[in-house]
Each structure stands twice: as structure tokens, then as C-alpha cells.
Design a protein around this nucleic acid. Structure first.
Lengths: 198, 198, 198, 198
DNA sequence: AATGAATGAGGTTTCATTCAT
DNA sequence: TATGAATGAAACCTCATTCAT
């Protein structure tokens, strides 16, 4: 019998180590040595689980997507219409530690997407999900009578996603000079306007 | 007798070469060798003008900011109120070749801002300018009667900047799947709403 | 009770797998992982049967020698004198798939012989066999009256072996630009001369 | 002014170091580290002159070809007909230190030719030269009346080249058990037969 | 007997930086 | 000032070998 090792658990270890390294050091400084060391193994061990660096990074992206998705789905399950929309948008912003990490990944994604097919692919998937999710909630809001029937759902969804992406960047770049409260207020202001409650 | 050299002109050569290299190859592939070669000099020459790579990059960022500023100022000189706002927002989006280049720089900025003080500093300057410019136009619109007097100028400005940043990223990531026309329509839709002309 | 395993059969599996890998990938790319995988086992299993890589390779060489020997012996059993000589020489050339494989092994042997005692040893054995075989057939030809009694058997044998080795290399390097027919014609021309039938 | 360096001389240094390393250690152990060290530089320096390992090796092959060519041409200038042929054949055999080195290169060439286009190309060039040279001398011998007019020059040339290649390998593999005198005697025996003087 | 995870040395390559000229 | 050769650290990747199970 082989040395008893939970192969999947070990893979998760490396993915988690890579995730944390990207978040803390940036993708450029995320070397396989650094990842392996953080995970408590040697570089050679990492290669057992991921053929090369690119494959490892791809898994990190996938993992990040999965985490975000779960948080969003949770918000949708609990709430409806405007309340759900608000929760999903806030959940996407870098207000807490987990989301802050996801944002570091996204910035890396945006930056590298011009030179990496894997990155582009992942980023497109992210947008597709985002737009689909927001659109669904908007249609729900229409059904609930919160929004007028003639609302251009697709355009609205794109503008909301843009707002979140843009506010997220602003918040990150402010480096503590913008409060979470202010960020939330901006989102609520936009929602007030959208739902005609301003 | 010292060799007569236009020190500033030479510096601009290197900055321009670095700018083009970042835009075309990405910051990761922007080696000082590549920059020096593109400028028509050797690595050793570059070192005379910039202490290290980071200093060179910082100057590229500054240069990029200057270029964008000039385009914006031009738009402001020619137009007023809503028309000026529209022009400034469109000017910021990656619709033409020049703006596309600036966006490549910004993505690099965002990505590296966590690990580079120079990047953070430049990015904060960019936001300050952006917000100041938009706020000024919004106030102008209020004066012109295009917007109600009670408009929260600061919040509006932040949301507009966020929209532009977010839409810019969406457009870049779409990689040709989103038309310039559609992007413009999204901005116009947002302006219609803001100015109550939807 | 120990697990019942046909030790020799398992060893042959590995040797055969290594043989095929060398032939198809070259000795440089013949990693023990690749061999083990091709054999349907893991690297750890291979180690049970061969102390290290060199020992495995040595067995491949031995196996290859055995295969060639069998083909030659078959030719000798069926034919006599010049006819046997012709058959043995042609059997040695890389005209068919099996022989092509042996030639890949020999080229590896020649190349590595300077740095590997095992290789040198195997190669010397190959020559000893070759020369003994050819010499025996030449003496047979003398007995049959096909060759004059004064023939310098040893020199003749060495020149014939050299011819085969040299032609084999030419054929392999030509990479399809030399036909099997032409190769055969060259051998027949040499035999015509040797046996005074040109 | 730059550091004064004879660029071509430096390249030759590296090529010579690589040549010696291949000869003494074999191509497999010819690492760029080893080559650079032997040349007295660091690995980084080597990269200034050769983009990668393959390019360096290609130059070694070319250099080797040049050396052999020069020796052959010298033999041809001084002698005619059979005497020239004898000299060229002996010059090709690994009888002296210089030729011994060339043979190590050729064995590497043969071995790696299946997996390297550069190797195949170089080897084909070697054969073309070889055959052309021998054919020319054979035609000269016909003109001189040393050989009958009907001699099949092409077939003869191929057999002579094969003989030399085969004898060279035998000699190398014998590892000192075959004397230079014996090797020369074998060649002379073959020439006696060819020129009808046996 | 067999597994296959893990090690760690060693390979090629890239590149910011230094420095003799 | 300018050159560009040279350094040397660090990156990714490969792989024979070891060893706990």
C-alpha cells in the first residue's frame, strides 16, 4: 500500500498556498518555490500534483471563482429582489478579508489576461456568471413590482457590474482612506436611484 | 569639453520606449534591455538616466498621466456641462488606440499597487484628478441648470468614475466581443438617467 | 504466504518497456518513470527488480543482443556459404522494423560507450560475436570452394562488419532518401567483388 | 567605448570549450554550466554569445566540420589518385587525437540525429561532402588509369565511406585493443583489392 | 511486493545590475 | 557619456532515488 496521502487534500493545500501567496505577494512573486515552501513541501512535491505553474494558477482561479460563487448563492437563497441585489453587490466588494483576497486575484487576472489564454477564459467566465446573476435578480425585481416592466435588464446589469468593479478598485487603491461605510453608502445611493426611492 | 547631450530629450526617449513596451508586451516582459533596445541605446546608457527599473516605470506612469490629462483638458475647453461630461467619460474609455494604451498601464498600476509605493502614489493621483475633474463638471452642470441643486456631487463623481473603470475593464476583457457602439450606448444610458432625460 | 509473482516475467516486462522506450524516444528521454509507466507499473516497483537505471539499461542491451543473435542463427541454419553470408549481412542492416530498433540501441551504445563500462562491455561482446560469426561463414565458403584458400579471414570479416556498420549509419541518416533496394544492391556489389563474380 | 573584447574570439572560446566538453564528457554531460566554466566564464556570459544551448551545439558541429574539411583539402592538394584516396581515408579515421575528437562528435550526431533537426542537417552535410570528395578522387584515379573506366564511382564511394565509418567505430570500441597499424593495414588491404594490386 | 509521495540536485534560461573601457 | 560584457541570483522544470506505508 502506498504512503497514505489524501491526494485531493494535498492538492488543496498547494492551491490554498498559491492563493495566499498571490494575495499577499502578487502573481509576479508567486514562484513555485514560494508556494511549495508555504505549503510545507519542496518544489519537487508540488510537481506531483500540478504539471507546471500555469496549471496551478488555473486551479487557484477556479477555486477563487468557486468561493465567490458560494457566497453569492448564499445571498440569493436568503433574500429576494432589491434586498438580494444589495447583498450580492456588497458581497462582491472588498469589504471583508475574504473578498479582499478575491480582488487581488481579479486584479492579477485583468493584468495578465492580455498575455494568457487561461486568464482570459477565466475572466470571461467570471463576467458571464456575474451578468447572469444580476440579470436574474433584476428580473425578479420586475416580477416583484420593484422595478418597472420596461427596464433594460441587460444594460442595467452591465452598469451595476461596472459600478462594483470600479468601486472595488477605488476602495483598494484608497488603501484605507475610504471607509467600508462610505462604500456601502455609495452602493445604497445607486440602488435608491435605480429603484426610484432616492 | 563634455559631449553635448540633450539630457531631457534622452530621458523622454527612454520613457517613451518603456511606455510602448509596457503597452505592447506587458509590464512583466518590459525588461530594461528591451526598453533600451527600443529606444536605440544600450542598457548601460539607460542606467545613466534612471537609477533603477522602478524609477523608469514611475516616470512612465507620470507620463501616461500627463497624456490623459491633456486629452481631458482639451475636452473641457471645448464643451460645457453634460456635453463636457460625456466627452470626458468617453475620452477615458479604451475606445481608441491611445486610450487602449493607457488602460494597459492602469491595469498594471492596479495590479502592482499593493507591492509598489510608486504605483500606489501614482494611482492616488490619478483618482484625485479624476474626481476633481468630474466634480467640477457636475458643479458646472448644476450652475447650468442641467442638474438639480441638491445633487451629491462627490458621490456622483465617485459613481461615474467607478462606472468608467468598470466598463473599461469589461470592454477590455470582452476582447472584441463588445462593440464601441454598445459601450457608448451604456454611457449615454447612464447619462440619460442622471440628467433625467431617459 | 508471500504474494506469488513471476519474478522473471516481471523483469522481462520492464526490459521490454525500456527497450521500446529507448527505440521510440531515445536513451536521453528514457526515464524510469516513462519505462515503469509503459510497463504498467510504478517507479517503485521497478526498483525492486533493478538496483538503478544503469542496471536496467544493461539488461536492455543484453536483450537486444539476444534478439539479434537469434535472427542470425536462424539465417545460418537455413543457408550455407555465400548465401548465408548475404543473409546474415542483410539481417544486420536496418531494413526492417525490428532491425531498425536494434540500430537505435547500437547508436546509443556507441555514443555512451566512452562514459559507461556496461556499454563498452556490451559493445565488445557484440563485435566478438559478429566477427566470429562472419569468420565462420567465410571459412565455410573456403571449404565450399567459393573463396580461395589464402583468403585473410580475419581481415575480411572486419571489413565486412565495418561495411555493414557504415552502411547502416548511412541508411539511417539518409532518413528515407536511400531505398532498401539500393542498400541491398551495395551489399550485393561488395559480395560480387569478394567472390569474384562481379 | 565599450569594454574591448574580441567578440569572435570569445565565441570561439565558448565553441572550443563546448567542443572539448563534448569530446571528454559526452553531449549528455555537456551542460552550459560546464562549458562556461571550462571557458572561464559564468553561464550568463555564454548567453551573450549564444541564445541557447542548441545554438551553441550547432556551432560546435559546424566548427568540427570545418576542421575536418581543412584536413581533407590539405590531403587532396598534396596528392593525387590512389595516394590521395589513401590519405583522405586515413585522415578520416580516429588515428590521432584531433580525429578522435571529431569521432566523438559524430557519434553524438548519429545518436541525436533522430530527435534533432540541426543534427540531421549537419550529418547530411557531412555525407554529401564525404561522398563528393571520394567520388572526385575516384574519377581522378580513372583518369590516371589507376582504375578501370567502368568503375561505378558512386557505389564505390558509398562503400568506402561505409568502410571508414565502420572501421572508425570498431577502433573506438576496441578501446586500445586494436592498433593504429592494424587499422591502416585493413585500409591498405581494401585499397589493394580495389586497385587490383592485392 | 508494490505504491507513489517526496526529496533535492541539477538542468536551461532570464534579467537587473555592475563595471572596465 | 556611453558601451555592452559579465555577473550571479533566481526562475521553472526534470528526474533518479529514497522511503513510509
Amino acid at each position: 500500500m502506498p504512503k497514505v496521502v489524501d491526494h485531493d487534500a494535498r492538492r488543496r493545500d498547494f492551491i490554498e498556498a498559491a492563493y495566499q501567496t498571490i494575495v499577499e505577494e502578487g502573481l509576479a512573486r508567486t514562484t513555485i518555490r514560494a508556494v511549495a515552501k508555504r505549503a510545507g513541501y519542496t518544489t519537487g512535491a508540488l510537481v506531483h500534483y500540478f504539471a507546471d505553474k500555469e496549471e496551478l494558477i488555473a486551479h487557484v482561479l477556479e477555486e477563487n471563482g468557486k468561493l465567490v460563487r458560494e457566497r453569492m448563492q448564499h445571498a440569493e437563497r436568503e433574500l429576494k429582489g432589491r434586498a438580494a441585489l444589495r447583498q450580492v453587490l456588497l458581497e462582491a466588494l472588498p469589504l471583508n478579508r475574504r473578498q479582499h483576497s478575491s480582488w487581488r486575484i481579479w486584479l492579477a487576472l485583468w493584468y495578465h489576461s492580455e498575455s494568457s489564454e487561461a486568464m482570459r477564459k477565466e475572466e470571461r467566465r467570471r463576467y458571464r456568471e456575474w451578468l447572469g446573476r444580476i440579470s436574474a435578480i433584476l428580473r425578479e425585481s420586475i416580477d416583484l413590482g420593484e422595478l418597472p416592466a420596461g427596464t433594460d435588464v441587460d444594460a442595467r446589469a452591465r452598469l451595476l457590474v461596472a459600478m462594483v468593479d470600479g468601486l472595488g478598485v477605488q476602495f483598494l487603491m484608497a488603501g484605507g482612506r475610504m471607509s467600508a461605510r462610505k462604500l456601502t453608502a455609495l452602493v445604497d445611493g445607486a440602488l435608491d436611484e435605480l429603484f426610484g426611492t432616492g
